[in-house]
């Protein structure tokens, strides 16, 4: 079943087109990975899907309803967003940071139910020991878990993640991706995430969208999309693609001599 439908989406910063004619569907309950080189339009696309940015042309539909017909708060009850990184200026406890996720659901007063949801989320992500600590003193991996927790406390049907594993070491990358794929299955939610690391994408996502210069270059499951030829054309990199457990893995060799890439 189609959860999200993105149709002919265009976006530009000033006169610089960033997205051109982007169309794809996201199925209910899948993890969709968006890959592509820097500047391909991944983050912009995610921000359009969440209406942080407004599309110039085209529509984005969730359950058949155009997202521009939603009020911001209605949308916030359906879609959660995990940013690449945020810079928190003032110190705040982890508990209160996660409690922010309840904002779309609460009136002025935060009730027992909201506290309970926060506690549940803390338990699920196994971060009880962090709960009363200050978000600014946590490591990158711990912070990322807290941001995921905040989006989960929101109880969304769709989770949008912008490179949730950037700046993390390998172990934390795997931990965070495990958490995401576990909750997607357990809660039956849909996840769309931009991923920088091709191997991580291959290992964890159900389907991949490969973007290049604001357009969709290829769509399909990891072994269809992550081919030596696609990687050369999109990233301008010679790579060897192997296979393990039915999933491709990528060993980059060198920059291609005559790339069609633009950078």
């Amino acid at each position: 079943m189609v959860k999200l439908r993105i149709k002919d989406v265009e976006f530009s910063y000033g006169s610089n087109p960033v997205l051109e004619g982007v169309s794809f569907d996201v199925n209910d309950g899948e993890i969709l990975g968006i890959i592509g080189p820097n500047g391909a339009g991944k983050s912009t696309l995610l921000r359009c899907m969440n209406r942080i940015l407004k599309v110039r042309k085209g529509v984005i539909m969730i359950d058949g309803r155009n997202i521009s017909d939603f009020s911001r708060i209605e949308l916030a009850r359906i879609m959660g967003y995990v940013p690449q990184s945020t810079h928190q200026i003032f110190p705040n406890t982890v508990f209160d940071t996660i409690l922010m996720g309840r904002r779309p659901h609460l009136g002025w007063k935060c009730g027992e139910i909201d506290i309970k949801k926060v506690l549940e989320t803390i338990e699920m992500l196994n971060i009880v020991d962090l709960a009363m600590r200050d978000i600014t003193e946590l490591s990158g991996g711990q912070q990322q878990k807290v941001f995921i927790a905040r989006a989960l406390a929101q109880e969304p049907e769709v989770l949008i993640l912008d490179e949730p594993t950037s700046n993390l070491d390998i172990k934390h990358q795997l931990e965070v991706m495990n958490i995401i794929s576990k909750i997607v299955k357990e809660r039956g939610i849909t996840a769309v995430m931009a991923v920088h690391d091709l191997n991580l994408a291959s290992r964890y996502v159900d389907r991949i969208i490969m973007m290049h210069a604001g357009k969709i270059f290829a769509v399909g499951n990891p072994s269809d999309v992550l081919t030596e030829e696609n990687i050369r054309k999109v990233y301008g990199v010679e790579a060897i693609v192997g296979e393990h457990d039915g999933r491709p893995f990528i060993l980059p060799i060198r920059p291609a001599d005559t790339g069609t890439h633009d950078s």
Binding site: R47, R72, I73, G80, P83, Q88, M100, R103
Partner: peptide, 23 residues
Amino acid sequence: MLKVWDLNVMSAGDEVAKSLGVD
């Protein structure tokens, strides 16, 4: 005082605040 929740959420950055339903 009615806006204190929005103010809290805005401390996490404009993008996150928007994604949490704040104008």
